[in-house]
Design a protein around this nucleic acid. Structure first.
Length: 467
RNA sequence: GAACCGGUAUGCAAAUGGUUAAGCGACCAGGCCUUCAACCUGGAUGGUGCGGGUUCGAAUCCCGUCCGGUUCUCCA
C-alpha cells in the first residue's frame, strides 16, 4: 500500500528551519514507506507571494536533497477547480454569501473581546435572502453548530474540539479568490494525500478543514501536527533569532546532511543515537515517535553535529562544497596541494566549511602578516638558530614527505638540544603565520618545500630586524 | 479573553506504572601531544513547573493551579 505525503509552503519568504523540518519529516515518512512525496506551493495570497520566494524554497529543498515525486503544484493554477468546489458547497447549502463589511466584523470582534468571549463570526448572514446593494460578498462555509470534531493526531493523540467553538470561515474573498482553508482541503483531497504532516500552528484549523472535507463527502487524511521550533528566548523562531533561512547555513559552511541530522533529532529520538545517516533516518524515523512538546533551536549542538560530519564525511564530498568557500576567499585550490589532502589534514579541527577554508589559506597563498601573539611567544633571538638549522636540513631533503620531514625536524631538535616544542612551534609560526595548524610535518609537506624554505628565510629576517 | 497544545538539569532528550531519572551538547579538570583540535578519563548540575489525589509503587494516570506556545485575519 503506497502512501503519499506533502510539503506545502507558502512562498512569502525563504525556506526556514521550521519548514525544512516539516518537509524532512514528510519526506522521511514517504521514503520510509516507499510512498510519494508531493511539493505544493500555496500561493493564493497574491499580494505576499513572490517568484523569488518560490525559487528560494526550491533551492533550499535541492540543497537539502529533499526531492519530490510530484509537483511543484501551484494553487494559482487551480482556481477553476476551487471555484467549482465553492459552487458545489453553495449549491449544497454548505456555503453562503456574507455581505458584512470589514468594519462591521471588526466592531463585532471588539465587542466579543470586551465581553471576554472568543471572537467569532456570529452567522448573521447565514439566512440572508437578498444581496446588499453595492457590496461584493465573501463566501462562508456553513460550519455545523452542534457536536464535535475528533482528530486522531499521530503526534498529539486524540484532540476533540466542539463545533460550537468554530465559526463560519471565509472560503472565498470578495474578489472571488479562494482562501487557504478551502484550498488545502481541496488539494489534499484531489492529490490523495494520506498523511498531512505540518506544524502544530495548524492544529486549530484542522477541525474546520475536517468539516469541509465531510461536506464534500471526502475521507479526511491522517494528521500529524509536529511541535514548533522555538528560539532561545522561548518565542517562535523568527529573524530576530539570527539565521533561520536554510540557505544561510549553507553560506555559513554547514553540510546539508548535518542540518538534516540536527533537524531530525529536534523533537525526535531513538535511544542514545545522535548521528543518523540519511538511510538510517529513513529506516528508523517514525512520525508516531515525535515529541509533543515544542523544542528550542540550539545552534551549539548544530555546530557539534556539523563537526561530526566534517570528521566523517567522504573527502570528495567535502571537497565539492569546500572549493566554493575557497573561491569566496579568493583562493584557487587547484594552485597548491590537493584539496583532498588539505581536508584530511584539517577535518579534525574545523567545525564548518567556512572555518576550514579560512584556516587553510596559507596552504595556497603567502600570508600577509603574522599572528602577533604567536610571534611574541615563539620568535626569540635564539630561535634564529633553530630556524636556520631547519632551513639547512630541509634544503638537503630530496624526498619531501611528512614521513621524512618528521625525523628531520627531530634530528635538528636533538642536535640543538632543544625540546620538540621549541623547534616545531617556531617552525609552525614561520610557515603558517599562526600558532595552530595540523601536525607540523604534514603542514610542511602540504605547503611544499620551496615555500617552506622561503617562509623560513622571511621569518629569520623578521626576527633579526626586530632585535 | 476563549479554545487548543505543551512543561524532565542552561539546550536537545531517554525512561510510556516498577530498584539509585539514560545519552548527547554546553561547562570544569586531568591525560595524550610538536600547537590547536580530535581522542581518552573523570567531574559538577535535575527528583521531572507547583499543589493535591489514585496506587504497594507515579516523570508516566486523575484533578486543580502557574507558566509558555498556537489559533481566534477577506494571511497561510
Amino acid at each position: 500500500m503506497s502512501i503519499k505525503t506533502r510539503f506545502a509552503p507558502s512562498p512569502t519568504g525563504y525556506l526556514h528551519i521550521g519548514g525544512a523540518r516539516t518537509a524532512l519529516f514528510s519526506w522521511l515518512y514517504a521514503r520510509k514507506h516507499g510512498g510519494k512525496f508531493v511539493l505544493r506551493i500555496e500561493d493564493t495570497d497574491l499580494e505576499r507571494s513572490t517568484e523569488a520566494s518560490v525559487n528560494a524554497i526550491l533551492e533550499g529543498m535541492t540543497w537539502l536533497g529533499l526531492d519530490y515525486d510530484e509537483g511543484p503544484f501551484y494553487q494559482t493554477h487551480r482556481f477553476d477547480r476551487y471555484k467549482a468546489i465553492i459552487q458545489q458547497l453553495l449549491d449544497q447549502g454548505d456555503a453562503y454569501y456574507c455581505y458584512c463589511s470589514k468594519d462591521e466584523l471588526e466592531f463585532m470582534r471588539e465587542q466579543q473581546m470586551a465581553n471576554k468571549q472568543k471572537p467569532r463570526y456570529d452567522g448573521r448572514c447565514r439566512d440572508r435572502e437578498s444581496p446588499r446593494d453595492g457590496v461584493q460578498p465573501v463566501i462562508r462555509f456553513r460550519n455545523p453548530n452542534t457536536g464535535s470534531v475528533i482528530i486522531e493526531d499521530l503526534v498529539k493523540g486524540q484532540v476533540e474540539v466542539q463545533n460550537s467553538e468554530l465559526d463560519d470561515l471565509i472560503i472565498a474573498r470578495s474578489d472571488g479568490s479562494p482562501t487557504y482553508n478551502l484550498t488545502v482541503v481541496v488539494d489534499d483531497m484531489d492529490m490523495n494525500i494520506d498523511y498531512v504532516i505540518r506544524g502544530d500552528d495548524h492544529l486549530n484549523n484542522t477541525p474546520r478543514q475536517i468539516n469541509i472535507l465531510n461536506a464534500l463527502g471526502a475521507t479526511p487524511p491522517k494528521y500529524a501536527h509536529v511541535p514548533m521550533i522555538l528560539g532561545e528566548d522561548g518565542k517562535r523562531l523568527s529573524k530576530r533569532h539570527g539565521a533561520v533561512s536554510v540557505m544561510q547555513y549553507k553560506e555559513e559552511g554547514y553540510l546539508p546532511e548535518a542540518l538534516l541530522n540536527y533537524l531530525v533529532r529536534l523533537g525526535w529520538s531513538k535511544g542514545d543515537q545522535e548521528i543518523f545517516s540519511i538511510d538510517e533516518m529513513i529506516e528508523h524515523f517514525d512520525i508516531n515517535d515525535v515529541n509533543r512538546a515544542a523544542s528550542t533551536f540550539n545552534p551549539e549542538k548544530l555546530l557539534w553535529i556539523n563537526q561530526q560530519y566534517m570528521k566523517e564525511a567522504p573527502v570528495e564530498h567535502i571537497a565539492r562544497y569546500l572549493s566554493v568557500h575557497f573561491g569566496e576567499l579568493g583562493v584557487d585550490p587547484s594552485q597548491g596541494p590537493a584539496i583532498e589532502k588539505v581536508i584530511d589534514a584539517q577535518r579534525d579541527r574545523a567545525k564548518t566549511l567556512v572555518e576550514m577554508a579560512q584556516t587553510s589559506v596559507y596552504f595556497y597563498q603567502d600570508f600577509a602578516e603574522y599572528d602577533e601573539k604567536a610571534v611574541k611567544k615563539n620568535f626569540k633571538a635564539t630561535t634564529v638558530e633553530a630556524l636556520q638549522a631547519l632551513h639547512d636540513a630541509f634544503t638537503d631533503l630530496s624526498d619531501w614527505r611528512a614521513e621524512v620531514i618528521h625525523p628531520c625536524i627531530e634530528q635538528v631538535a636533538e642536535r640543538l638540544d632543544l625540546k620538540m616544542g621549541k623547534v616545531g612551534q617556531p617552525l609552525r609560526v614561520a610557515i603558517t603565520g599562526g600558532s595552530s595548524s595540523p601536525a607540523i610535518d604534514i603542514t610542511a609537506e602540504l605547503i611544499g618545500k620551496e615555500k617552506v624554505l622561503k617562509r623560513l628565510q622571511n621569518a629569520i629576517a623578521l626576527i633579526q630586524s626586530r632585535t
